[in-house]
Nucleic acid binder design. Structure first.
Length: 600
RNA sequence: GGCGCUGUAGCUCAGUUGGUUAGAGCGCCUGCCUGUCACGCAGGAGGUCGUGGGUUCGAGCCCCAUCAGCGUCGCCA
């Protein structure tokens, strides 16, 4: 904040230093707290730069002291006086201005505040619903100020970096056309075209492809996206993406840009060096070693296929699993032999909640083996083979699940994360990035047909243009960037050939007339000299959340919705007057709204 | 949509086996206090115990329903 913006004497609270001694200043801000000693009144004033202490002495400035003693938390004040050093021994090292104070000459009260519903100063724990209802007060709290300032710096770093790399920021429309697949769309009724609707974009995907066709070789946007899906704790109906796209790209080219961008973000916003280039894993590798396509690489604990150890086992459950061609996947819990039977039982219950049929465990204690398996199943041969496969040491425990291979890996992968959390291995101050590559192009959807793993515009891997018989064997030119077990972003080289795009739509079973209706403009655009293109989209909210180590993305969004996607401050969504509905030619199939007075 | 946890003063919470007038800390109000910074001291106000119903001589506590907040799963190219 420049001083000239608010008056010649004005100084930021956090900026006062001993060198200012004797200077007449004015500080403006909110009353953080007051300490009235009768003969001396201290007022702590907070602005966005920090806190300054002002002192009123009734003997030298009776009017100012009287006003100061009337001040209460969150009153807005402008205080004038001379800066002076605090008496030796009374400095406050917790404040940047803590060596100084302002000797009050005058107090002007710019606005009184009601008693706030929760303390604004400090970091008191307050129920989130209340914080959201009074979000403007919650945002006044120092940690929210810090979070949003960091978010600003992160986004600014993106703009600076991509600008430097020759990217243009181009806006795309918010009122677009509904498409039936993917997530549900938010609809916006059209008044001018009664009975017709716009949709809010789930992402600028199609528009950025069209910008490539248009010849903007490098595009980006800090784009708001909307998805009308069921609420989940870490989801918002509207969220922000860094959306970028390049013409004539290679996967390596996109990866280099995004790595550079993320490194710049972390350097500028956090002063952290993230160590690019990032590690890389194939999708198959990630699944095999971590049971997830977004592995948390802050710790090892790789999954181990232990099926061979149980060939010919007496343990009926595993014998049956091996017989059925299932896999037994294990994870080593270092030091886990110290767990109590109760502990293991609790882990088994957690695994059951995830859908595991059971959780087997063997603990290598100093007093010998402890296990959920029957004694008869703990043949020396089995134990030796298990030890050789897992490298479990004395004091460790091996936890195992048996299931169809992918499912077993997924379950073991969840257990890996669960154990790591219990063992405090998920350190929020560490940032382990990786790329996941070589995704399948298609996957089996719940109806049993094939669907796109990501979206239908992803180009097949080089060499598979002929699209051979088994669609599930096709690889995609797709890449995810992952941080600490969270997918930050996902991108691909797109299909730029209209004929190939048609073939992919056909393989997905989209009827031809539907394709024409929904994607006709895209196919047409591709046919007018679309360049090869590809890009990526990254979730800003998630990135910033991880940067600040917050529990929820709501901690890094200024005005988020609650878990039911409602705005507790404005009370949105809300019913609207019937006249508005009439204008839109809409009729609502609900009983009449209750009178407003009955609602909270 | 399912499941779980929570709901008591402005805030954060305690509240015994169902039993007299429902408590604490902070905040708020009043007074005192010249070096505090979570100032201190003394006094005071403040409660439809989320809401509705039920059981009971008696319900903050037990039962049913409902609302809200949070968490979690389904869902989310």
């Amino acid at each position: 904040m420049k001083n000239s913006a608010v008056g010649p004497l004005h100084r930021d609270c956090g900026s006062l230093h001993p060198q200012d001694e004797g200077t007449e200043v004015e500080i403006r801000g909110w009353v953080n707290s007051t300490r009235d000693h009768g003969g001396l009144i201290f007022v702590d004033v907070r602005d966005s730069s920090g806190i300054a202490q002002a002192v009123a002495d009734p003997r030298t400035a009776p009017e100012a002291a009287a006003a100061a003693s009337s001040l209460r938390s969150e009153d807005v004040v402008a205080l004038r006086g001379a800066v002076r050093r605090r008496p030796t021994g009374t400095e406050n090292p917790k404040l940047t201005s803590g060596d100084t104070e302002v000797a009050l000459d005058s107090v002007s009260i710019l606005n009184r505040s009601l008693t706030p519903p929760f303390p604004v100063h400090g970091e008191a724990d307050v129920e989130e619903g209340l914080r959201l209802k009074y979000r403007y007060l919650d945002l006044r709290r120092p940690h929210m100020q810090r979070n949003l300032a960091l978010r600003h710096r992160a986004i600014k770093a993106v703009r600076d970096y991509l600008d430097e790399q020759g990217f243009l920021e181009i806006e795309t429309p918010m009122l677009i056309k509904q498409t039936p697949e993917g997530a549900r769309d938010f609809l916006v009724p059209s008044r001018l075209h009664g009975g017709q609707f716009y949709a809010l974009p789930q992402s600028p995907q199609l528009f950025k492809q069209l910008l490539m066709v248009a010849g903007f070789g490098r595009y980006f946007q800090i784009a708001r996206c909307f998805r009308d899906e069921d609420a989940r704790s870490d989801r918002q109906p509207e969220f922000t993406q860094i959306d970028l796209e390049m013409a004539f790209p290679t996967i390596e080219g996109v990866i280099a840009v995004v790595e550079g961008m993320l490194a710049h973000m972390f350097r500028q916003a956090l002063a952290v060096d993230v160590g690019a280039p990032f590690r890389r894993l194939s999708h198959a590798d990630a699944m095999a070693r971590y049971g997830s396509d977004k592995p948390d690489l802050r710790f090892g604990m790789e999954l181990i296929e232990v099926t061979p150890a149980f060939e010919g086992t007496q343990f009926k459950v595993f014998a049956a699993a091996v017989q059925a061609g299932e896999s037994i996947v294990g994870v080593v819990d270092e030091g886990g032999a110290a767990r109590s039977r109760r502990d293991f039982d609790a882990l088994a219950r957690v695994a059951a909640e995830w859908g595991a049929k059971g959780l087997a465990w063997i603990a290598f204690t100093p007093d010998g083996l402890k296990s959920s398996l029957p004694k008869a199943a703990l043949e020396t041969q089995t134990i030796d083979r298990l030890g050789a496969l897992t490298h479990a040491k004395q004091g460790d425990a091996v936890l195992m699940v048996a299931a169809e291979r992918t499912e077993a890996r997924t379950l073991a992968g969840k257990m890996r994360l669960h154990l790591a959390a219990q063992n405090n291995l998920r350190d929020a101050r560490r940032f382990e990035f990786c790329w996941v590559l070589d995704f399948p192009l298609f996957e089996i959807n719940p109806e049993g047909g094939i669907g796109p793993m990501h979206h239908p515009f992803t180009a097949p891997a080089v060499g598979s243009e002929s699209l051979p018989g088994d669609p599930l064997s096709l690889r995609a030119q797709h890449y995810d960037v992952v941080l600490n077990g969270s997918e930050l972003g996902s991108g691909s080289i797109r299909i730029h050939d209209a004929a190939l795009q048609r073939r992919i739509f056909a393989m997905l079973g989209y009827p031809e007339d539907e394709v024409a209706e929904r994607f006709g403009f895209l196919l047409e655009a591709l046919a007018f000299g679309a360049p090869p293109h590809g890009g990526m989209a990254l979730g800003v909210d998630r990135i910033v959340q991880i940067m600040v180590g917050a529990e929820s993305i709501r901690e890094v969004i200024a005005f988020p919705k609650n878990q039911r996607f409602q705005d507790l401050m404005m009370q949105a969504p809300a019913r609207v007057p019937k006249a508005l509905l009439d204008e839109l030619r809409l009729r609502v199939d609900l009983p009449p709204a209750p009178p407003v007075s009955q609602r909270s």
